[in-house]
């Protein structure tokens, strides 16, 4: 990852920034990792100060995002390794954790991680019963029983050819 500062890529690579979470924890991050986030990159281009305060990301989420950014900024790792890192990164995480993570990736504009997390969230929902999704994700059922029965009748083709899980 080469920064916009073309004059000294070597020194730029070693530069670090400090990112502070909303609950006050501070993280030392290499600039090459930080600029993988489009938002952080913009901030760094604009201000001299090397301390960035993020008012809506908590320390746990921020630590995860930084681990992701640092891994992807590491030129020493092969693409295959990064890919398996991505899979490991989201596996086994609670849905709530993923929710915070996906919001953070949106704020920080880390598109690649946003896709990875969104995919994981979709995978969790995939082939689940509607009732399961409602229960797990606290979604209010705003259909009347009649309207819901009608939709199920009209879209019967969408239900009949697969086994839905309720685990």
């Amino acid at each position: 990852m080469v920064t916009t500062d073309e004059k000294g890529p070597l020194t730029a690579k070693k530069k670090s920034v400090i990112i502070r979470s909303c609950d006050g924890d501070e993280f030392l991050v290499s600039e090459s990792a930080a600029v993988l986030s489009t938002s952080l990159k913009k901030i760094l281009e604009e201000k001299e100060d090397r301390l960035i305060h993020l008012s809506d990301i908590d320390n746990k989420t921020l630590a995860m995002v930084i681990a992701y950014l640092s891994t992807h900024a590491d030129d020493g790792l092969s693409d295959d390794l990064k890919r398996s890192f991505d899979q490991e990164f989201v596996s086994g995480k609670e849905f709530d954790v993923l929710k915070y993570l996906v919001l953070a990736t949106d704020t920080l504009q880390v598109t690649c991680l946003c896709y990875t997390v969104a995919k994981k969230m979709a995978d969790i929902m995939k082939n689940k019963l509607v009732e399961w999704v409602r229960r797990e994700f606290d979604i209010q059922n705003d259909y009347t029983p009649e309207a819901e029965a009608e939709i199920r009748r009209l879209d019967a083709w969408a239900w009949d050819d697969r086994q839905l899980e309720d685990d």
Binding site: D23, D25, E26, F27, N59, A63, M64, A67, F85, E88
Partner: peptide, 25 residues
């Protein structure tokens, strides 16, 4: 935090918590 070989390595290398200020969580 996150497990896995690649992660562990990078964590030690680059993301270090410097100080703690406010109330947690």
């Amino acid at each position: 935090m996150v497990t896995g070989g690649a992660v562990g390595r990078v964590e030690v290398l680059e993301c270090r918590i410097l100080e703690k200020q406010n109330v947690r969580s």
